[in-house]
Nucleic acid binder design. Structure first.
Lengths: 217, 217
DNA sequence: AACCGGGTCCCCCGCGCGGGGGACTGCCGA
DNA sequence: TCGGCAGTCCCCCGCGCGGGGGACCCGGTT
């Protein structure tokens, strides 16, 4: 089964280079070349290629905008590969948010570009390795940011439990009902939590819990 | 320049399969094979290979644990590629957090595995495309999570300002001082905010603001 | 045996908070 | 011109909250 590809770049020279690369593969077929983003959007809608390879920088509408337009139409099944000369975090995140299947540097070896087209066509996504590393780094911090404050293990299990409920904005009475204890007991726990964490009142406790990521888990 | 590789998997058969794949490349050299995670950690420390290919499931210490131990020692420059039979989100995120350079399925074609080793050795990271796609999806939501509640634009600019300060756990008096207005004014603003957002008290307001991501920005 | 920490319950007191009213200014659009 | 809205300030009232005490039980350590 052959794969149809659309090329979008404002430099005719680069387009023919890409076409030459793809034409070395019997199963890859360039069905269109366009020179700007708006043409890319309309030609994709008309020809519905398997994969569209878009330069980021293009006249009228850049690759990112074209990607967003193409993928916002659910009728389009075309996968998007974005090409850029220099990578930039901003570009990557916007591209990924829009749902692009790949984000590649023009320095990528031809055989890897071909492989990227096949990967994208079968529905998987692919990012240039040098970009992936930064993506991972940023993803990792956004996943495991909260360096649990040390004073937090001064709290007993029960106190942590109460703190969690306080941070969900429950009143002392509500917490008491939820834990099946008297509300005087809850007041004691809350007071101890505030003292141990050096917080003024439950409002500070709520902010503290959320800021330190206690509510994610 | 040749690249040294360490293989860790509890199945000798799979190890020899991997070794055979790498030995087809003149510049790749398997310097060690081990059958469990602890051996992997010590051999990596001793031989300092360019790349270590670790199975996730191994006796004594799994690939994830071994990765964490290896990468927590800054003296190790070895890059880690993790292998698994079935992918699991949990594994991926833990692997990425530990700093692994790759997360690959055993179904990966040999030539892509070889390419992965080269990519890892030159300091880049690489994830199996099918995994990448989910990574992107999750990353995208973690970047653009706060679907700003509609009732929020009932608030005037001043009220949003006050809400932000409330969410930072400032008292009415503190907010008044900060905004150079009387505290009666602040009380009015707070009351309006609570009414418009349907919140009971400032404690709910704090939780609301944090949960809806108003504090990130 | 004595001790201590965690969990539970109780009383009193002061205060910040939030709701209920009302009122004045300035600005913008009908 | 007049209304409405946002922003500011004011008073009173009730209540939840947090600090200050104290008390009991239980389990584990000394």
């Amino acid at each position: 089964m052959t794969l149809t590809v659309l090329l979008a770049d404002d430099h005719a020279m680069l387009r023919s280079g890409l076409r030459a690369i793809f034409e070395t593969q019997p199963d890859l077929h360039c069905v269109a070349e366009v020179g700007d983003g708006r043409a890319a959007v309309s030609e994709v809608a008309r020809l519905r290629p398997d994969v569209a390879v878009l330069d980021i920088r293009m006249p009228k509408l850049d690759g990112l905008g074209a990607t967003e337009m193409i993928l916002s139409d659910p009728a389009n099944r075309t996968k998007i590969l974005l090409l850029t000369t220099y990578d930039s975090d901003e570009y990557v995140y916007r591209a990924l948010n829009a749902g692009a299947s790949g984000f590649l540097l023009k320095s990528l070896p031809p055989e890897e570009l071909i492989s990227a087209v096949r990967v994208a066509a079968r529905g998987d996504a692919l990012i240039d390795p040098s970009v992936t590393q930064r993506l991972i780094a940023r993803f990792a911090v956004s996943l495991a940011p909260p360096p649990t404050p040390p004073e937090l293990d001064l709290l007993t299990a029960r106190e942590r439990e109460v703190l969690h409920l306080v941070a969900e904005a429950f009143s002392n009475a509500e917490i008491a009902a939820r834990l099946h204890v008297g509300d005087e007991t809850v007041k004691t726990h809350v007071s101890r939590v505030l003292a141990k964490l050096g917080l003024r009142d439950r409002v500070h406790a709520v902010a503290y819990a959320h800021i330190n990521g206690l509510m994610r888990r």
